[in-house]
Design a protein around this nucleic acid. Structure first.
Lengths: 198, 198
DNA sequence: TGCCCCGTCTGAACGTTGTTCAATGCACTA
DNA sequence: TAGTGCATTGAACAACGTTCAGACGGGGCA
């Protein structure tokens, strides 16, 4: 019995995550409704709470998937130009980040919009994925600076990631100023070329 | 009567904005409650809707004040070093931006967290203030590039603003990685010095 | 086989939201 | 003073996440 129940729970978890992802992708994080999801999954509202702590837990499950795909997209992009100069690899990664955010704006925004103010801990996979992403960025930077001061690479890594993130964030925020795609790429190239210029 | 009523409305608008600002400053945008505000202002819940379209309208009023103060803070900072080289003026502005966000995190976040998905137009003062801010940034950049290609200054302005914004945003997001203040300043200086280096 | 027991699942109910609108009150005019 | 029209009220509404007492059902024991 125990195994059977566990399987059902796992299956429901999967179903709910899939349905939630579809909603977030289509209409944004704020369109998630417990009752709607329960209807679509063919279960009771309460069943959601047998499988997730609350709606935030469900959102985190969706974000886990998104984060994985984002990481893969960036990794693949840099792998394709593995032999290019460090600056070009950085640009390729940043453009890939832009591509992903641009192709999945709602899922991407959900990564940062999830409410974590309550005492819930940041999931460990969150920090791990972020660490993996930072490691990929750090590599070309390390090649550009073979003899760095302590912490210098880390500072540059965070600065560059944050900068690209900011450009993508405000660029996609069409309410403030819808920036055409090629201009965003222009900003990213401008920034990275300047910063990494010896 | 008409004038008297108008005055009362104006006074209520002022009172509500002030109270809302206090709440946002202390506990963030999501802590705004229509009933709480009405209690504190000594009016009925419905009265709020005589003065604002909805809660988003009230939030926009709060953001209007915040935007004004932010602009003044940045302007003052750059005015103090008006004779310094362009790069130093850019750094002074960015540090001032960081200072403001750091000193008023909840009010600052509210500037970007306000829900505008509904068809409500972006208020014209929003674009105006943003344009003013961009103009301040563009000036040192124009000095650094006396003979720019068309649109180049604008692209640089947006790229730099977005980058600094991203650094401040992720740096203050303590859930992801609480970055100490001096490291954030380090990132900003690193970025701006590199980007503006001839 | 039949019965009981215990964990699972259900969905009505709860407490809070923002928002509305019929009813009330009030100030000013004729 | 009676009448009129708009400002103001706050109970009611719809929708939300979340809970929990009870219905349900399957596995172990007599």
């Amino acid at each position: 019995m125990a195994r059977d129940t566990t399987k059902r729970r796992e299956a429901l978890r999967e179903t709910l995550t899939e349905l939630a992802e579809a909603h977030v992708r289509a209409d944004g994080l704020s369109s998630l409704r417990a009752r709607t999801l329960a209807n679509e999954a063919g279960c009771a509202v309460g069943a959601i709470y047998n499988v997730f702590d609350d709606m935030t837990g469900l959102t985190l499950a969706v974000n886990g998937r998104t984060f994985g795909r984002l990481g893969k997209h960036v990794s693949d992009a840099v792998a394709k130009v593995a032999n290019a100069p460090p600056t070009d690899r950085l640009i390729a990664m940043a453009i890939a980040y832009l591509e992903f955010a641009s192709a999945n704006p709602n899922l991407w925004r959900a990564l940062f919009d999830v409410e974590m103010s309550t005492d819930r801990d940041v999931p460990e996979w969150y920090m791990q994925e972020l660490g993996r992403l930072f490691a990929i960025i750090a590599q070309p930077l390390a090649e550009l600076h073979p003899d760095p001061e302590p912490g210098e690479i880390d500072l540059m890594t965070r600065a560059l990631f944050s900068s690209v993130h900011g450009i993508v964030l405000l660029g996609l925020e069409n309410r403030i100023s819808a920036v055409p795609r090629e201009r965003m790429e222009g900003m990213i190239e401008f920034l990275l070329k300047r910063v990494t210029a010896s």
